[in-house]
């Protein structure tokens, strides 16, 4: 019983994050609204950030700023990587939003199926 609890507690972070990832993935594929797609993409990315930070976590440790009286610190490397990844993610999102604005200007809609329908009509 003890070990099951340990397993659950030790892996709950991962499982919750996996659930986040899947919610994001589902939204990316299933939602027709472009803005919704981007939001879900962002959820997906954030999930990955959480995953990394969880990997860097250490019991009974402190933030990785060296100071007197502390000897256990969290792993700094995942944090560094995620700092970069967050910025990269936001840059991508910004380009995505800009594209949405342009698409709205060109089509008057941000629903993917409606846009495809308009293209079809134009071709005929």
């Amino acid at each position: 019983m003890e070990s099951v609890l340990d397993l659950v507690l030790g892996h709950f972070n991962y499982w919750a994050v996996i659930a986040l990832l899947m919610i994001g993935l589902y939204g990316i594929i299933a939602r027709q609204n472009l803005l919704k797609k981007l939001a879900c993409l962002s959820i997906f990315q954030t999930g990955v950030f959480l995953l990394f930070i969880s990997w860097g976590y250490r019991h009974d440790a402190t933030v990785p700023i060296l100071a007197e009286g502390f000897s256990r610190y969290a792993n700094p490397l995942p944090q560094v990587l995620m700092l970069t990844a967050i910025v990269v993610g936001v840059a991508t999102l910004a380009v995505g939003y800009a594209l949405i604005v342009r698409i709205h200007k060109a089509y008057g809609s941000i629903e993917e199926d409606a846009i495809l329908e308009k293209d079809q009509q134009e071709q005929e």
Partner: peptide, 18 residues
Amino acid sequence: LFLVLDAPDVAFTEAAVG
């Protein structure tokens, strides 16, 4: 959550950027 997980720098960035 980042803050709880001992990652203040990431937390600040996420708060500001995200």
